[in-house]
């Protein structure tokens, strides 16, 4: 309890300072935190009791947004991990694909939004495409790197005991690569939040991003701030959940290397 208290006391102090400063300054651009909190409550938590007090906005905008984010991320993870294992274990395939991958991942994903807009029209598939294309690379490149560096002796052990192919891939390659894969998944998760917002800011009528645009048009600053804070909370929550999962899955590691900052792998070297 005291640890928790200590940890958040500076934070709480800063919020109080911000509150006082904004009240004193009385600047419409910077509404006080209480006003932002009130706006957030009004926006999302003032619904009828049978909806758990959640407003329709939650169901129409928040949940679709988060679903797209998670969906896109999950699709990218599925593609990235399976393709990454295949490429990581085949030198030939990697040599063919390496330069192409390096170039593709260098493209800033938002630059492709117009392409996806045209190919898929405005809507969920275009947003998913943007997210998947953008967040695929960290997962793919990290998986390739992890799968490539499976210990030779573990290969020899598996070969000598004639373990079947599925056991080699699922039981040796994947666990060996797991720490790297998780690092990739973490980068991708925060990137998918960014791309979700970008894809929703390109003129859609649904999602948290579009709500931000609405607030901007109406010069409703408390609502804009509430939206921004909400995105931060979502990002924080998703990251915390992923870290917990990672902690469980990689619990076998002798040294916890979770504190390491994210390192991105590069193809080809």
């Amino acid at each position: 309890m005291t640890k928790f208290f200590k940890r958040w006391i500076v934070f709480a102090g800063l919020v109080v300072v911000w509150q006082i400063a904004t009240v004193l300054a009385d600047d419409p651009f910077f509404p006080p935190p209480t006003e932002i909190a009130e706006a957030a409550r009004e926006l999302w938590l003032s619904g009828p009791p049978d909806q758990l007090f959640l407003t329709d906005i939650v169901f129409e905008h928040l949940i679709p947004s988060v679903s797209r984010l998670m969906g896109g991320w999950a699709i990218a993870a599925a593609i990235g991990i399976s393709l990454g294992v295949a490429l990581g274990r085949s030198r030939t395939a990697l040599e063919f694909a390496g330069p192409l991958l390096t170039f593709m991942r260098s493209i800033p994903p938002p630059a492709l939004v117009p392409v996806f807009l045209l190919l898929f029209n405005v809507g969920t598939s275009m947003q998913l495409a943007t997210i998947v294309f953008g967040v695929l690379w960290p997962i793919l490149l990290n998986t390739i790197d992890g799968a490539r560096s499976v210990d030779t002796l573990k290969y020899e052990t598996s070969a000598v005991f004639r373990v079947p192919k599925w056991q080699w891939v699922l039981g040796v390659v994947l666990p060996s690569a797991a720490p790297k894969i998780f690092a990739g998944l973490r980068v991708s998760l925060s990137l998918s939040l960014v791309l979700m917002v970008v894809s929703e800011l390109v003129g859609t009528d649904n999602g948290i991003g579009s709500q931000l645009l609405v607030a901007q048009r109406e010069f409703d600053f408390p609502n804009m701030w509430a939206g921004i804070v909400l995105l931060g909370v979502i990002g924080y929550a998703l990251n915390t959940v992923l870290l917990a999962v990672e902690h469980r899955v990689l619990g076998w590691q002798p040294k916890q290397e979770h504190s390491k900052p994210v390192q991105l792998a590069t193809a080809g070297d």
Partner: peptide, 25 residues
């Protein structure tokens, strides 16, 4: 049995599962 046990055993498997590893087939 290889010399380098630390690399030949699978760190993500318990002792029991390491021994079971080649028997799954």
């Amino acid at each position: 049995v290889f010399q380098d046990y630390s690399r030949s055993l699978f760190p993500w498997l318990s002792v029991q599962r390491n021994v079971e590893f080649p028997l799954r087939r």
